[in-house]
């Protein structure tokens, strides 16, 4: 599995993680290109359905990146997202898919380094796990 390049989707909150990702860019911090970002106004908007959809479409890993605890622009959207992530992790587990493929991560807008490090660590973690057992059947 050395050559395995995981597909990773990151749902990022506009106010923090997305900004942090931009900041990682402006600092030219390198992280694996496997991570692709979808911007949301708040992680509280990320539905369990969206996370599942990413796996259905072929993601090997998904993470939801929101503001630090207590820092949500909408009070508690990030904690709601965290609860939802835990719920979907349970579904994945029931389906025999490693729940670690889904994660909730928190960071502030200023944490460009953390964004890059997280992207790196998450990618490595998924690389360890190998391809998601539900890769869609290529037509």
């Amino acid at each position: 599995m050395k050559n395995f390049e995981p597909e990773i989707v990151a749902f990022c909150c506009h106010y923090c993680a997305y900004t942090a990702a931009d900041m990682a860019g402006s600092k030219r911090l390198s992280y694996p290109p496997n991570v692709k970002i979808i911007r949301v106004p708040c992680t509280g908007k990320v539905d369990a359905l969206h996370m599942m959809r990413a796996f259905e479409k072929g993601a090997d890993g998904v993470y939801v990146a929101g503001c630090l605890e207590g820092d949500c622009h909408f009070k508690n959207g990030n904690t709601r997202a965290g609860q939802r992530v835990a719920y979907v992790q349970k579904i994945l587990e029931d389906l025999g898919i490693e729940p670690q493929r889904l994660e909730m991560i928190m960071m502030s807008a200023g944490m460009g380094e953390r964004f890059a490090r997280t992207a790196f660590e998450f990618t490595e973690k998924i690389r360890e796990l190998g391809p998601c057992p539900v890769k869609p059947i290529k037509k």
């Binding site: 359905l49 959809r53 259905e56 898919i97 057992p133 539900v134 869609p136």
Partner: peptide, 14 residues
């Protein structure tokens, strides 16, 4: 319904 459908699809793909 959407979630269960998604989960079932994932399972069948698996």
């Amino acid at each position: 319904v959407g979630l269960l459908a998604s989960a079932l699809r994932l399972n069948s793909m698996k």
